[in-house]
C-alpha cells in the first residue's frame, strides 16, 4: 500500500510539469506528443503498480516494477541520444547563421571602406 502511495505521488509530480509546460506552449508539438504519451503510461502505473505483473511474467522479468524500471532506463537512453542529435542539428544551424552574419558584415565593410 505504501508503495502505491509513493508511485502515485511520483506520477502526479511527473504529470504536473508536463501539463503546465504544454499549457504555456513552452514545448514544441513533437515533444508535447512524446511527453503526453509518457504521462499516459506513468499515471495508471503510478496508481496500480502491479498492472504490468502479467506482462513481466511473459518476458521473464521478476516483477512488473522492475520491468517498468528497465523500460524507463531504455527510454531515457533513447531520449538522451535524441537530444544529442538535436543539439548537433542546432549547432549546424547556428553555424550557418554565423557564416551568414560574417558574409553580410564582410559585404558591408567592402561597400563602405573605412576612412
Amino acid at each position: 500500500m505504501r508503495l502505491t502511495v509513493l508511485t502515485a505521488v511520483t506520477a502526479l509530480v511527473v504529470i504536473v510539469p508536463i501539463l503546465e509546460l504544454l499549457r504555456r506552449r513552452q514545448l514544441r508539438e513533437k515533444y508535447a506528443v512524446l511527453w503526453i504519451c509518457v504521462g499516459l503510461v506513468v499515471l495508471p502505473l503510478g496508481f496500480f503498480p502491479r498492472l504490468l505483473d502479467s506482462l513481466s511474467g511473459l518476458t521473464g522479468v521478476a516483477s512488473g516494477v522492475s520491468l517498468v524500471l528497465f523500460l524507463g532506463v531504455v527510454f531515457l537512453l533513447l531520449v538522451c541520444i535524441h537530444l544529442s542529435w538535436e543539439t548537433s542539428r542546432l549547432e549546424e544551424k547556428t553555424r550557418t547563421l554565423a557564416e551568414e552574419i560574417a558574409l553580410i558584415r564582410a559585404e558591408l565593410s567592402e561597400r563602405e571602406p573605412a576612412e
Binding site: 553555424r95 554565423a98 557564416e99 552574419i101 560574417a102 558574409l103 558584415r105 564582410a106 565593410s109 567592402e110 573605412a114
Partner: peptide
Amino acid sequence: REAGATVAQLPYNLGVGGAMRLGYRYAKD
C-alpha cells in the same frame, strides 16, 4: 584589414572547418 585583405569575421569560434566553409561560400558567391 590594414594589410590589405578582405576580412570576414565570425561572431564566435567555429574551428578551421567552419572558417573554411565560410571562405568557400564567399568564393562561390
